[in-house]
Amino acid sequence: MDGIHDVGGMQGFGRVQPLTADPPFQHRWEGKAFAIGALAARIAGTNLPAFRHAIERVPPPEYLRGYWNRWTMGAQLMMEDSGIITDEQVRARAARLSGQDVAEPPDPEPHKPQMEITGPGNLRELDTAPAFAVGDRVRAAADVHPTGHTRLPRYVRGRTGTVAAMQPAAVFPDSAASFDGENPQHCYTVEFDSAELWGPDAEPFRLTIDLYEPYLEPAR
């Protein structure tokens, strides 16, 4: 989806935060949030791409309210989708924890998609030959605006680069996130010149990004 998460090249976020040696969790609740998110896919009968997609669907103001907030809201959204929990329940429990005497809504009916990726991780062996080889010129799909999950960010769509390396084939996140099966795909490290991405006045540099085969077409 063309969501708030796809920030590559966006302007207006200001200066980068200073490099600090902050611990993984600044507060105890952040550690608890981490654990809930890490367990949420299993609880909801889903998978990691589905969790990423749930975070993408967190409304932009909440997404920008901090990492552990969007992480927690993504986990909640995924569990809502699987009928594990409702937002009304969370709000009622939050109110009770704050000392208000409110009624607790009933549990929803679970309807887990049962599309857990339980195999040995996300890498897969493919019988089909890869369509591209190192050195090939490729173009990232231009006019695609999927409403679901994709790992093809806006800033490379329609841009031409060169295959710099082959990566192991893997579960296709776009399919897994929508519970359409693993649909494993070849994956390529594609290198772009900064001028191709940002125009002739761009800082000179090269950029690589790892793209699944369905995102790519041959180019000259």
């Binding site: 552990w68 907030n69 929990i85």
Partner: peptide
């Protein structure tokens, strides 16, 4: 919701 409170509510549920 306050993020910390949401986490507590989710964790307890």
């Amino acid at each position: 919701l306050d993020p910390a409170l949401r986490v507590e509510a989710l964790a307890s549920l």
